[in-house]
Write a protein that binds this DNA or RNA. Structure first.
Lengths: 233, 233
DNA sequence: CCGTAAGTTTAGGCACGCATAAATTTTAAG
DNA sequence: CTTAAAATTTATGCGTGCCTAAACTTACGG
């Protein structure tokens, strides 16, 4: 008997697979075995085995050699996990002084152990927040989620002014680096240069002490911004 | 590979076994296979198997057919789990509005998932409390615990006045019943009668509306009191 | 259209943690 | 002291979830 998560009756691994597959689907990519394996840091044959179990449980559909797709039930469970994760991150950050670079790891473990009751109490205590500390939208209890329309910093034109709205929570190193640059959520900046061939982007942060920062292309792709148009510095 | 708890490197089950064995030892009873099996609600052969693994890991010593004893390391881990459990219970109760009859179940799951860091942050936010919502002493970070000297209500003499100091957190039904009687921690009452042959105890609660309550012997054994001596109502 | 590289699945194994049934040891009774 | 009852351990087996190695599909370049 594998340990069951409260109420869902699903194992920790199962929840992790569903969440990972959901994320791949959300990115538009078909959820292939190798992609799942990479996301969860397991070997591809392990994924094949789990996919078989999950499809037998009706949580996803599997077309051999092609990929998988979550069923309605699978997606519901995945969104429930996303809600748990993001409410936890928000709570840890707001109420217990965690930094945005350390919440992810803690939430990743807790999301399998908390009850729905506790999540709702935390959400209540926070005033039912809509976004987590990285700007990720928090699905409602009913499983509704609204992805904010953001533009990758890498795609913002020179001369535009933009605001940082969303960042991946995956790499805490990266988050610490962003903090050190003064790039927090809500930070406003102007794009002053963009090098071609996937080159870096240069921005000027607005604030008491405006500074110019050079952001590598890959990092710039992971930053979700809202473009405010061309403003006069 | 079994899922590992943060930092301890031990599985959920391992942590549960150590905690259960610790509790048996604390009660003076030798930790026998059957007692462990009963506490964890598993079959005795499962205990034999786990005991073998635990003793190979140096967490306890096993004398075949006799019983088991925690090593220094085993006890340290067990006390760490007790601290986690009780800090969690206190936090859930103080900060998230849980009742004393519902905290145990939630803490039971969370104790395996939280990091030491989170426990210390919670303890800090609570002002480093010494007791959990059931009056159980919270071990320090260093693993020191001081069992309060309490008397079972079943052993308090007629005419004595006592204060409720500690209750088992195991049975939430029982806790709800106590609440319904007005018997919370700190409640002061006088023992007005005791029936022989493990019969019930009758108490009179002090307060705005004094009431007499009859408490069954078994329940009275589970209530830890501090006797205040004979006072005039 | 054929063959190879890349991706996927099957085959076979292992550790954990649980179970039941059978063998063993201890205890307690006569 | 012998023997039956109770407790414990050993023997086996099962499901989960991971692994590596081998077999199999699919996609693609020549």
């Amino acid at each position: 008997m594998s340990p069951a998560s409260p109420r869902s009756g699903l194992s920790r691994s199962t929840e992790d697979y569903l969440k990972a597959i959901h994320e791949l689907e959300a990115q538009g990519r078909p959820a292939q075995t190798s992609a799942i394996a990479e996301a969860l840091e397991v070997a591809p044959p392990s994924v094949s085995g789990m996919v078989k179990r999950l499809s037998e449980s009706g949580l996803l559909e599997h077309v051999p050699y092609r990929g998988v797709q979550l069923t309605r039930t699978g997606r519901r469970t995945a969104l429930r996990m996303v809600r748990r994760h993001r409410v936890l991150e928000t709570y840890l950050s707001s109420k217990l002084g965690y930094d945005w670079d350390s919440v992810h790891e803690e939430a990743e473990r807790l999301e399998h152990a908390v009850s729905d009751e506790l999540i709702e109490r935390m959400a209540m205590a926070l005033g039912n927040p809509q976004f987590d500390p990285h700007g990720g939208p928090i699905p409602t209890k009913e499983g509704e989620i609204e992805e904010p329309a953001v533009t990758q910093l890498a795609d913002v034109a020179v001369g535009e002014t933009a605001e940082l709205r969303m960042v991946s929570d995956r790499d805490s190193e990266r988050l610490r680096y962003l903090s050190s640059l003064g790039l927090r959520l809500g930070a406003v900046f102007e794009v002053v240069a963009r090098q071609p061939f996937r080159g870096p982007v240069t921005i000027r942060l607005r604030g008491a002490m405006p500074r110019e920062q050079v952001i590598g292309h890959e990092l710039a792709e992971s930053l979700g911004c809202v473009v405010r148009g061309q403003e006069v510095g």
